[in-house]
Structures are given as structure tokens and as C-alpha cells.
Design a protein around this nucleic acid. Structure first.
Length: 523
RNA sequence: GGCCCCAUCGUCUAGUGGCCAAGGACACCACCCUCUCAAGGUGGAGACACGGGUUCGAAUCCCGUUGGGGCUGCCA
């Protein structure tokens, strides 16, 4: 019989991802699912999905749906399942009967408090075997596994080698609750046996419970039973190097999706946590990962989940998309309620034209709306800091006004293209002794509201002459109003020049939410 | 406390006894490119936890120490 590098039987690899639906899918669980999936696809094996929902108190159906949708988003398709432990109670009952009949279990009536008070201060922690020889009837009682007093259990782990656990350190653990429902170790092992699982790939936090599972496995299938090969993946940790926790760390896979991360970037990043490509390159599509993934190459040590690196990789994947795919990926951020403009103002054609310029400037999809909002808003939202930098100093305010005036004159009749707008702005700047870099700043803020964004002249071209003129005029009035030592009411009334009231409404800037009072359009 | 795991730049890692005065990537700094910002390019700073062995030779093997983490539930 031939053998895979990982020690399994070639061609018969069966792995499973077995989450407990007590919350949304956690990035650590997603990594576990991914490695199982990669190993299965690599070896031509079978990837089984199993829902471990034996704890009816904590499981909720909506979490099951969330797990399915997150796995689908990542593209981790199962070959079998989903099986549900809640539908397999018969199998667990039969296993319990078998173990009971063989004398491997005994009933225990001790409460947790009783056990604690008896064992406090013991060298060996945990249950003390109090009910072991009492011969209590099983009805209504918890059932404990009779752990051998001596000997040891060896866990064969592809990643960590052979890990030895002395039986003395393993307490007589509970397999069945007093209510009769099975606990993790029982259900997990019975399922792995029934589903012919050959490789158990899971988080390292499960390593300490593995000898218990192996004891149960042998009790059920005999001392010589063929045991699965294990692979305990290094934990994913936070900046304090603690296991990622649902309570204090941002671990919901779904939230990354909502923040504008691409599934292929998430898969890529997750694969890099504990594994690396032999060639050392990091930006990979799932196919490339698949080509060289080997379980035995997985690391031993914990890895910090670094959002900064994920974000960088996401940017790389974003830039790799062709224009249509990028536009498609952006769609949820542009056409739903979360877009910062009224949905009827969105112009798909216009976005499509600017998309390539946006694509190379964002690292997440969530950044896209803020980069193009000026194209779909009646009035650009003027950034407070940007505005102040251009107008606070009186001398600077004069130059800004001169720039705006000069460009306003130039755009009156020039050809309407990015190139001519560029040249015109350049010339106006030169007449004021400014290079284009500084010269374009007031124009950019007048047009887009921000000092950073997509290339300015392409943006102006897309906006059209009328809107550009209106926004330049509006910014000029705003500077004029602020320059006069007048009250806000007077400034606003000076604004109400009837000769251009109509067009101002289409291009008038409005100062950002940071200072909503100072709006040129108010009054 | 007990059992178990882990230990290379801030972070993710390459490295499996000589090719390592330790390589790459993210982050950071500088410069270049440049209409802003990105992207891109060039350069810089930055690590083998410590102590013993084994060996002609150790980041790599062994032991110990220290440090970090996990588990220790009638959760999974």
C-alpha cells in the first residue's frame, strides 16, 4: 500500500471541517477550513462538512447559515455534508451502550462544586475518580470514561511529530451529560469513525483533548484500530499574542467582507499564516497555492493576524482585477444604501470610466465611494483641513482665489479634455509662480472637496464644463465671504447673487460634516 | 499548580550542519517618478531569547534556563 507524504493512504484521504455554530465564522476557523480544503484538493481526497451542534443551549440556526455563506464566499466547497450531529443522536447512543456494556464508562453523581472542594490543592487536577467503583446506575447521571491509571497515549501529528501524554495526567472525563446528550469528545470521535476520517486538521487548542479522543476511539474500535493522522495548526493570535477571541478581537470573517476585502485576498492571506510558497512569493491565486501546498510544510509557531498585511494583499488582488471585475466588485458599495449619494444620482457609465484610476488607488472596496463621491453628489463635501490649508493664511487665500479665477477663465472656452485642462491649469499656475503640484490644490478642493483623489483633470473632464464652472465659482465666493470680516448671515446673503443662483445649486460646495455651519449654500 | 505546544527583523516568514558577515514580504524611513494621493522603482534601518553541550563547523542536532501560549467545563 502506497502512502502520501503526510502518512495517509493514497487516494483515500478524507478530512472534515467541523465548526460549532455558536457564532459567525471566525478567521481562525476559516483558516482551518482552508487548510482542510487545500489538503483534500491536493490529495484528491474528500472534504466533509459537519456541524457540531450538540450543545443545544448555545447553537443557533442563523449561525449555521452564516458559516455556510462565509465558506461559500471563500470558495471552500464541500464534497460531503453538511452532516449535523443533532441528527445523529442514534449513533452516539449506540456508542454509549457499547462502551457501557464493555465497562469503559461509569455513572457519576458528583456536582462540579463537590469535585472542586474535594480536589482543591491536589497535585493532579481534575476529577478524582470518586464514583469510579460505586456502581451507580446510569439513568440521570453523567457518564465518565474510565481512563487507564498507567501508560500513555501517543498522538501522531504531521506538524508536531509524536506527542506523548501520560494517562495519569488525564482525568476521568465526562462523555455523556446527565441529560443524556453526548459531549464533544464522544460525538466528535464517533463521527470521525463513521465518516472514515483519515486526517484530523484543526487548531492547536484541540491538541490537549486529542488523547481523550484517542482513548475513546480505541475503546470503540479496539486497541489495534487504525487511528487518524493529526495536524494541529498553529494558533492565530492577536497583538498580545493571545489566541484570537470572539469577544475582544475583530475575527468575524463576514466583517472583513463588509469592509471591502476580496475573498481571494483573504484566502491568500490565510494560507500565508503558517505556510509559505517554496519560491517565496506571496501574492497568489488559490490555484497557485494548491499547486504547492503540503501539510507537512506547515509551521509550528503561532501567527499574528496582521490586518495591515491583509490590506496590502487585498490592494494587490484589487489591482489584478480587469476593469469589469473591479466594477462588479465595487457595485455593492456604489448602488446600495451604504453609498454616500442618492441612488438615483449614481451614473454607472461615469464610474466605469474613472474606475481604472480608482482601482490603483484603493486597498479595500470600502475606500471607493469616498474617492468618487464628488462625481455623484450635487455638491462636493469640502474637507475642513484641506479648505483651511488653502484659505487660512491671507496670502495663501489670495493665491488660491487667483488660481480659481484663472482656471475659471480658462475653462470658459477651452477644448474639454483632460489634456487641455491640464495645460490650462499649468499655465495659470506659472503665471502665479507656482508649479502644477501646488497650483492644482485649490482647484482640486473646489472640484472634489478633497486634497487627494483620482487624477484631477480626468475628473474635471468627466464632470463637464457646467459643473466645473459652478464649483469653481462657488469656491471663489466662499473664499470671498470668509475674507470679509462679516457675520455668517451677511456672508450668506452676499452669496445669494440672483444672476447665478440656478447653477450654483448644482455645483456649490458644502463644507464637511466636521463644520456643518460653515456652508456656502446655507441661508 | 498540572499536562502540552512554541521560540529567526516590530509583523508574516525562508532557512532541515558548511552556499548565512541570515534572504523575501508587510509596516517604517529616505530618494526617484509625479497634477494630489496611490501604484511603481532605488536605497536604509531592523532578527537567529539565553546558557551549556555534540561537531572540524550550528540559526539548524541534544540538554537546561527564560519567555510566550494553549488546555485543565455535564463548551467545542
Amino acid at each position: 500500500m502506497s502512502s502520501t507524504p503526510a502518512g495517509g493512504r493514497a487516494g483515500s484521504v478524507r478530512v472534515r471541517f467541523a465548526p460549532s455554530p455558536t457564532g459567525y465564522l471566525h478567521v481562525g476557523s476559516a483558516r482551518t477550513a482552508l487548510f482542510n480544503w487545500l489538503f483534500a484538493r491536493r490529495t484528491g481526497g474528500t472534504f466533509v462538512l459537519r456541524i457540531e451542534d450538540t450543545d443545544t443551549e448555545r447553537n443557533r440556526e442563523e449561525w449555521v447559515e452564516g458559516i455556510f455563506s462565509s465558506l461559500a464566499w471563500l470558495g471552500l466547497d464541500a464534497d460531503e455534508g453538511p452532516y449535523r450531529q443533532s441528527e445523529r443522536t442514534g449513533a452516539y447512543g449506540a456508542a454509549v451502550d457499547q462502551l457501557w456494556a464493555a465497562g469503559m464508562l461509569y455513572a457519576c453523581g458528583c456536582s462540579r462544586e463537590e469535585v472542586e472542594s474535594r480536589t482543591k490543592g491536589n497535585a493532579i487536577p481534575g476529577y478524582d475518580g470518586h464514583c469510579r467503583e460505586l456502581g451507580l446506575p446510569r439513568e440521570g447521571r453523567a457518564l465518565r470514561f474510565r481512563v487507564p491509571d498507567a501508560g500513555n497515549v501517543v498522538v501522531k501529528d504531521v506538524i508536531r511529530g509524536e506527542v506523548d501524554f501520560p494517562c495519569e495526567a488525564i482525568e476521568d472525563f465526562v462523555l455523556v451529560k446527565s441529560s443524556g446528550s453526548p459531549l464533544f469528545v464522544l460525538a466528535n470521535v464517533v463521527d470521525d469513525i463513521d465518516m472514515s476520517i483519515t486526517h484530523v486538521i484543526r487548531g492547536e487548542d484541540l491538541l490537549p483533548s486529542t488523547p481523550k479522543g484517542l482513548l475513546v476511539w480505541k475503546a470503540l474500535r479496539g486497541e489495534d484500530a487504525e487511528l487518524p493522522v493529526f495536524a494541529h495548526l498553529p494558533m492565530l493570535v492577536n497583538e498580545r499574542r493571545q489566541k484570537l477571541s470572539k469577544r475582544r478581537d475583530p475575527v468575524a470573517l463576514e466583517s472583513y467582507r463588509e469592509q471591502g476585502y476580496l475573498p481571494q485576498a483573504m484566502v491568500n492571506y490565510l494560507a500565508l499564516l503558517g505556510w509559505s510558497h517554496p519560491d517565496g512569493h506571496e501574492m497568489m491565486q488559490v490555484g497557485e497555492i494548491l499547486e504547492s501546498f503540503r501539510l507537512e510544510d506547515v509551521n509550528h509557531s503561532p501567527a499574528f493576524f496582521d490586518v495591515a498585511k491583509l490590506t496590502h494583499l487585498n490592494g494587490e488582488h484589487l489591482r489584478k482585477l480587469d476593469r469589469e471585475a473591479f466594477v462588479e466588485a465595487c457595485s455593492p458599495w456604489l448602488t446600495t444604501e451604504r453609498a454616500p449619494w442618492p441612488s438615483d444620482r449614481f451614473d454607472a457609465g461615469r464610474f466605469r470610466r474613472i474606475a481604472p484610476l480608482v482601482q490603483e488607488r484603493v486597498a479595500t472596496l470600502a475606500e471607493v465611494p469616498g474617492m468618487v463621491d464628488f462625481l455623484f453628489l450635487d455638491q462636493p463635501v469640502i474637507d475642513d483641513d484641506a479648505w483651511r490649508a488653502l484659505t487660512q493664511d491671507p496670502g495663501e487665500a489670495m493665491v488660491s482665489a487667483a488660481m480659481l479665477t484663472g482656471v475659471l477663465e480658462a475653462v470658459e472656452s477651452c477644448d474639454w479634455s483632460a489634456a487641455t485642462l491640464h495645460d490650462a491649469t499649468l499655465r495659470v499656475g506659472e503665471s502665479l509662480g507656482r508649479k502644477l503640484g501646488r497650483a492644482q490644490a485649490p482647484v482640486r478642493v473646489a472640484i472634489t472637496g478633497r486634497r487627494v483623489g483620482p487624477p484631477l483633470f480626468e475628473s474635471m473632464e468627466l464632470l463637464g464644463r457646467d459643473v466645473v464652472q459652478a464649483r469653481l465659482k462657488a469656491a471663489l465666493s466662499l473664499i470671498g465671504a470668509e475674507a470679509r470680516p462679516s457675520t455668517g448671515a451677511e456672508a450668506a446673503s452676499a452669496e445669494g447673487d440672483p444672476s447665478r443662483a440656478g447653477e450654483v445649486s448644482a455645483g456649490n460646495p458644502e463644507v464637511s460634516a466636521g463644520n456643518p455651519e460653515r456652508s456656502a449654500g446655507t441661508g
